Simulated scan of single mutants.
Amino acid sequence: MPRIGHHVERAIFDLRRGVPVVLQDADTATLIQPLEGLQAARLEELQPEAALVVSRHRLAVLGASADAHQAEALRLPLSSCGPLDLARLERLAFGSQPEPRVATLAQPADAGERGALALMRRALLIPAALTVKLSGEARDVAQARIDSGEWLSVEAEAAIGCFDSAAGMLTRVSDARIPLADAPESRFILFREPDGLREHVAVVIGHRRDWPSAVPLRLHSACLTGDLFGSLRCDCGEQLRNAVADIESLGGGVLLYLAQEGRGIGLANKLRAYTLQDGGLDTVDADQVLGFGDDERHYRAAVDMLGALEIQRIQMLTNNPQKIVALEAGGIEVVERQALYGQLNDHNRRYLSAKAERSGHLLDDVLHADTSRSSACK
């Protein structure tokens, strides 16, 4: 019998293709349909019995009271939402305009619905889904599709725990020597998660025999726009290159390049968030409009990679205290922290300020230095 995690991994790929999945919980079967890629005809088919499942972050944007969005997931019965076409459904799920009346209809999500939301996040889709409770003939039809292999059935609890299913299961795939401009003695080691969707790279700089006893380490989340294209909306590319140079100057160490684009929401959602920021929102509020928290990253893969590299004690290059907390929770000893900055500019100032003020990043030095320079020029 396939392991439970394998079913979750298959479900992630089905959902990314727009194929529904059935979540089973005791005597309840829940059909989940991703919102991304949903066709109008499919909405019409599902609408009479469907509910829209959204995150507590999204419900807060819709105008729900604080008490209503304590749970991680909530459901909005579509039958109670009034006239509903695909455009309005998308506005409910990730539009920037709140609908307070609809928010009052929210109900607590059950296990199947919580599992639906977890799978959407894991699949890097908008964290919203249509769900239908299957019974009678509808359940028989669904079971026939499951039996034929057209649809997949997954245990609801396995779906809820999908972010934990990859822990300890990274596969070391390949490695090669890659000389870098600032670190000519470097080796790239690629690790793959069991769902096959995410691949992470350990950049091993210098020779292990020359490393300090507390290994210099940078956890760097992938940023296509900043790292590769030099986007001015963030400081990621400069941080990446500065980290390589700093690790080299410290005698060598490791940079873990993690597939966690957009603080874990994926490139598609990051671009959606950028569009919302152009409308006036900061980076935290933009992510919340889409249904995400201010940081969706997990660092279990980083802990597993350090274990594979037999690294236990580190000095960490970061401005983010949460990275230190995450590694220490995974059993890594963080001996000290070193700041790591990029350049402040007119395009990334609001982004960096929001990270400092709302997410606790330690950026006072770079932000204050900019203020001091501006004052001195007056």
Rank of each mutant, 00 (worst) to 15 (best):
A329D: 13
E45D: 04
D294E: 15
R101F: 05
K378W: 08
N319L: 11
V215L: 05
A273N: 06
L267N: 01
M120W: 02
Y257F: 12
A354T: 12
Q338A: 10
Q239T: 04
Q288K: 14
I265M: 00
A123C: 10
L119M: 12
T371Q: 15
G342H: 06
A50E: 03
A243W: 00
R114A: 15
V61I: 11
E199T: 15
F292D: 01
E296M: 08
V204A: 04
Q97T: 15
V201W: 02
W151I: 06
A158Q: 05
V366H: 08
L124I: 01
L46F: 09
D140A: 15
L134S: 03
S231G: 07
K133S: 13
L119N: 03
A301M: 12
C377P: 01
T283M: 11
E328R: 15
L290D: 01
A329S: 09
L35E: 09
S231M: 10
G206C: 09
G136P: 05
K355D: 07
C81I: 07
H368S: 06
G251R: 04
L62M: 15
L134P: 00
A64S: 14
P98M: 15
S148C: 06
Q97K: 08
A159G: 06
A138T: 12
L232C: 04
I12G: 03
A329G: 13
G360F: 06
A111C: 11
A118Q: 07
E328G: 10
L363F: 02
A142Y: 00
V289H: 04
C236G: 05
A259G: 05
S359L: 14
A144N: 14
A245Y: 06
T171P: 04
G307D: 08
G230F: 09
L92D: 07
F188G: 04
L232I: 09
F292W: 00
R10P: 01
Q33M: 13
L362Y: 03
A158F: 02
I126H: 14
L352I: 13
L84I: 04
M1Q: 13
A159E: 00
T275Q: 11
Q315D: 11
G115Y: 05
I314D: 05
Q288I: 03
K133E: 14
I205G: 02
A326S: 15
S359D: 05
E333D: 08
E99T: 13
I12Y: 01
G279C: 06
S65N: 11
Q33T: 15
A60K: 12
S374L: 14
N242K: 11
L232N: 08
P216A: 07
A326Y: 02
I146D: 09
L367R: 07
V154T: 06
L84P: 01
L130G: 02
D304S: 04
A41D: 13
V244R: 00
A166K: 00
R192L: 14
R114H: 13
L217W: 00
Q24L: 12
G230R: 07
T283W: 09
Y341F: 15
A202R: 01
A329Y: 07
V335N: 05
Q338N: 11
V19K: 09
P83G: 11
A29D: 02
L180P: 06
E333Y: 11
Y274I: 11
R42N: 07
L363V: 07
G251T: 05
G5S: 13
D287S: 11
W151D: 03
Q33A: 10
V244D: 02
G149S: 12
S186V: 07
E296D: 13
K270A: 10
D182Y: 00
P216Q: 04
T171M: 10
